[in-house]
Amino acid sequence: MIGPRTYGPRLIGGLAFGVLAVFFVIPLIFMIVVSFYQPDPMGFYKVDFVWENYGKFFSSFYYTVSFRSLYSAALGAVLVVALAFPLVLFVSDLSRRMQLFWIILLLSLMCLSEVIIGFAWLILMSESAGLPRLLEWVGLWKNPRSLSPSFGAMMIGLVFLGFSIVSLILYPSVSRRDRNIEEAAVTLGTPPALVFYKILIPTFRTSLVSVTLTMFVYLLGVFVMPTMLGRPKDWTMTVIISDKALGDANLPLGAALAVVMLIVTVLVLIVSALLTRRRAT
């Protein structure tokens, strides 16, 4: 017997479940249903059952775009983690005071909205005010052009967006790690420069994979960065979906694309989870 049975936690859990059901599952079902409706230029949709919307997905444009979003989200996620993990390692070895400084810096980055960050980069990469001008002034670039919109600019935006989140997720376990493990590796002949690859990455592999997957899903849903910093052909599925659903008032096509995206995302997650589990044993 642990103690008298209390209903508090169950009640809260039940409430949370209820909220999730109402605000996630029901819209999801609605979305799936709508994806089979007929588009109606005059009034969003007509109730029907057609495969036409899914058919459109396999026409090359949407197909390419969906893989492009998978690609940019995956690349973004890998880049974010590849940059954030070394930084967190570096920060965790600083003095307490400096660590606190970095944590506050990262937290304050997280407080900025996507739109503000997007604008900031837009200005930084613009022809008239930003980095290109600086490069011209230094003499490194003769005829500067704006660096955005471009795939690279969008990537920078995505990485910036995910950076503080990933850093703060990794920080607790990295700062509490047993430093003796790295020292043991050195006493066994590992050159200090290789400790990162031979010990730290394998030790944190599970957390690195899971935080990369989290970032992947997060970046798939990012909307502002691609529209602000990317060219139309860099636009991710999220942008296309809202463009179709809201811009063209074609809700059924938007819904069908969203369903396909959801299925692909879940498949990617399942496959990566299976792969990591197999390697862990």
Partner: peptide, 29 residues
Amino acid sequence: PCHKRNIGMVFQSLALFPHLNVGDNIAYG
């Protein structure tokens, strides 16, 4: 430097490599 000294060290926390099994820990060096 430490990695070129021929020493064997046992740490207070033991510091076994968590990602390797027993045999691979011993075979690491």
